[in-house]
């Protein structure tokens, strides 16, 4: 019988509450954007978010706080809420690319690089682009970063 294992996004969640809010804000938005981008739906509820983030079992602290984080996203205008359902706001849809470029910078990495693992170009998109410009033109896509 095949068992896929059960990777959890939560294992890398920060411990401090302030960072945790930012972390879960990013995680939730990524799921909503991912679903929207893949054409898999625009409405999410807390159970769907929980499923996508691997937050279980229900009743643990993270699960209880997910509704708080969702409400915070509604309050800051990133999501619109309708009962138990949430969707990207018109502003989020309009500003999507800008948000993807700023809110998820920790996940934006150089795709391919001629540099080693310690190269500073892996730290951010801007640095990767600068690194790419500094390398010889013989390498077709050195240090290329894609936002």
């Amino acid at each position: 019988m095949y068992h896929a294992g059960r990777p959890h996004v939560t294992s890398s969640a920060p411990k401090s509450e302030q960072l945790r809010v930012l972390y879960w804000r990013s995680e939730i938005l990524q799921v909503v954007y991912w679903l929207h981008g893949e054409g898999l739906g625009d409405l999410v509820d807390i159970d769907l978010i929980r499923t996508y983030l691997g937050v279980d079992p229900p009743g643990v602290d993270v699960h209880q706080n997910l509704s708080i984080y969702l409400d915070l996203l509604v309050a800051d205008g990133s999501l619109v809420g309708d009962g138990d359902w949430y969707a990207l706001s018109a502003r989020s849809l309009a500003d999507g690319e800008a948000q993807l470029a700023t809110a998820f910078t920790d996940l934006v990495r150089p795709v391919r690089s001629g540099c080693d693992e310690a190269c500073w170009c892996r730290a951010s998109t801007a640095e990767a682009e600068a690194c790419a410009r500094s390398l010889p033109e013989t390498d077709p896509q050195p240090g290329k970063a894609i936002v």
Binding site: A4, L40, T51, Y52
Partner: peptide, 21 residues
């Protein structure tokens, strides 16, 4: 899709996969 999403995230954390928007 939910399981696939988590699996891809896990593989990305293991640096087996890279992704971008």
């Amino acid at each position: 899709p939910g399981g696939l999403y988590r699996y891809l995230r896990a593989m990305e954390k293991e640096e087996m996969v890279s992704s971008w928007w």
